[in-house]
Every structure is written in C-alpha cells, then in structure tokens.
Amino acid sequence: MKLSILDQSPISSNQTPQEALEATMKLAERAEKLGYTRFWIAEHHALPGLASSVPEVMLSYIGANTNSIRIGSGAVLLPYYKPYKVAETYNMLATLFPGRVDIGVGRAPGGSAEASAALSDNFLQSVFKMPELLKDLINYVDDKDEQVKAAPLPPVRPEIWMLGTSEKSARAAAENGLAYAFGQFMSDTEAESVVEQYRKAFKPRYEGQQPYVILTVSIICAETTEKAETLADSYLVWQVKNDQGNNFRGIPSLKEAEGVELSPEEQKKIDDMKNQMIIGNPDIVRNELNRIQEDTDTDEFMIVTITYSPEDKQNSYRLIAEQFQLQKSKK
C-alpha cells in the first residue's frame, strides 16, 4: 500500500510560525526516511493556527533538504492565479527537482471572505471559470500552447492532480485525464461512489495513462488507542472553537484543551468529527485503512495528522509506516 502525507503547517500554542514551518520541513525529511511516497503542502490564507500560505516556497525548501520523496501542493487554489504563472512556478520546481513534483489543483477559497478579497478582485467569477483555467494550466504544463512556453521546461513535467470533495471534482479530473485526490477528511460524501464515477468516466490524456486515486484521511495513531484519543483532543477542541469564531493562538496543549468548556453543540460537533477520523493504535489504523481500500479500491492514501507536539505527529506517521512496512516496500 502506498502512503503519503498532507501537511498544513499547524502552529502549536508554544510555537512561532517559523518553528511550525521548520517542523514541517523536518517531518518531510522523516517521511522520506520512513518510505512515504509524497509530501504535499496545503494552501491556507489568514487562518489562525496554520502557517502554510505559499506552498511553493515551502516546496523549494523541502525539495532542497530531501532526495527522493515527491513534493507537491495540496492544493494550488487556482481561481486566485493565472494558469501560466502556476505552470512557470511548478516547471521551475520540476527543473530543480526532476521527477518529483506534483501540482495539486483545487478551487476552494482556503480562508475567509476578507482574505479572498485581498487576494483577488474576482474570486467567485474565477471559480465559475475553473474549467477554462484548468485546461489552460494543462496546456502550459504539457507544453501544448503554440504562443508561449512556461519556462523553464523541465526534463520531467510536473504531474497535475485534481483535488476535491465531491462528484463535481471527480468529473473534472476524469474529463481532463488527471489523477484524482479525494479529500475524505473534509467531506461528508462517501468516497466509494465518487471514486467509481471517476474511474468509469476517465479519459486518458496520453497513451497508456490509467486513472489513479488518492484518498486523503485524517489519522492520529499512538501506541495505545487511549493515548491516540488523548492526542486528538487538542486538535478537535482547536478545530471546533475556531469554527465557532473563538480563535486560539495555536493548537492548544493537552492541558489547555482539558480546561476548555464545551457547549453541547460543540461536543456533538467533536463527536461527529471523530467519526470522520481514524484514531487508534497501529492495529486499528492498519485494519481501517485496509477496509477502506477494499471498499474504494483506492491506489494510495494521503494522511493528515495534527497534534500539539511535533514529536507525537512524527511518531504517529512512524507507527503507521511500520505497520505497512513502507521502508521494505521501497527497496
């Protein structure tokens, strides 16, 4: 089984943004040693507790400090940008790090309405133009535009992925011959039907191309399920309080999370979020991923893990890698 990582560069309450970004880079180094396939960076804007606003900057830093793991965006929020500039940026990364670069593309705002307005004068209009923007990006990356080249042209072009949480994104991926990453961790839609629809509708962009699916899931793993549930508490409290507009300075410590009072509505939301996650010891995580793979026939899992401590986060990824013997499978 192939496993990968999506990191959002969360800022814990005892960290500076610089320390959070350094923790992301160290996690990427560790992920490569553990045998993970790829390491993607999320794009968020003006969201408290998240330091990753410009994935391509982090990707250049990570690429320079790793050797083989694939690196990419999860995702470039395309309505904010000109496709040509995105193609130039990722072609340059692919020139620096040949055969390692992914362009994950999405259309979510990735932040508040105020942040969207600061980034773009016509974000909603650009969302409606997403099919056109996507086709332009593909043409630039595939070097099929007759008038302008997205220089530098890399020895191995970046791989374009469509990211989404619905059947609409699955259709866009299939129609354009793109690999597809379904964000199960942030969607109420069942993955099985979405993935099946993508595979049935897939139209190859080049000869021999096959449909390919990543399923992105939220996991917290520890030596015992009790410990994993305790580690999850700080993330869940942070998430639900931010959703209610009560912004923490960062991911709270376990002690800080214990002291937070929750309303019945907030507690219900936390319970619902737990149902969308995999929280447990290594055996539970392995069994659940195997079950989901059987149900969805996914090609790869991408894991999102947020904990207060970077050490607990690295340990979670280590325990999962050991369950699936990633290092052995890469030899």
Rank of each mutant, 00 (worst) to 15 (best):
Y235F: 13
A20P: 05
L133T: 05
R291F: 02
R38E: 04
D233G: 10
E300I: 04
S126V: 09
T298K: 08
V141I: 14
E159N: 06
D297S: 09
T165Y: 01
E192D: 09
L59S: 08
R249D: 15
A87P: 00
M58D: 03
Q267N: 07
F185C: 07
A150G: 00
F301L: 08
P83H: 10
R107V: 04
S316F: 14
K313A: 04
E32D: 15
V217W: 08
G99P: 07
D272A: 14
I284H: 11
R38W: 08
E132V: 09
D283L: 12
N247V: 13
A232K: 13
L3N: 03
N315P: 03
D188C: 03
P252E: 14
S53R: 01
S68H: 06
I220V: 13
E22W: 06
P264C: 08
R38I: 03
Q147E: 12
E132P: 04
R199T: 11
K255D: 14
I220G: 10
P109E: 01
V127L: 05
G63Y: 02
S316T: 02
Q267R: 15
Q267P: 00
N247M: 15
Q197E: 15
P310Y: 05
A108W: 01
S120N: 14
R286F: 05
N14S: 13
L47V: 11
T296I: 13
D295S: 14
Y80P: 05
T66S: 08
K313P: 10
K331A: 08
S166R: 00
L27R: 13
N247Q: 15
R30L: 09
N290C: 05
L3E: 12
L6I: 14
Y84E: 06
R30N: 12
L153D: 06
E56G: 03
A228L: 10
R100T: 09
S263P: 07
Q184S: 11
L262Q: 14
N290T: 07
P152N: 11
T307L: 13
T89N: 08
P83G: 01
P131I: 06
A46T: 13
P211S: 10
K2T: 07
G74T: 01
L231H: 12
T189D: 14
Q239I: 11
Q125R: 11
P98N: 04
V76W: 01
R318Y: 03
L119Q: 07
K2G: 00
L215N: 15
G99K: 10
Q197P: 11
E288A: 04
L236Y: 14
Y90F: 14
A191N: 09
A150D: 01
A150S: 02
A170H: 07
C221W: 09
P79L: 03
T216V: 09
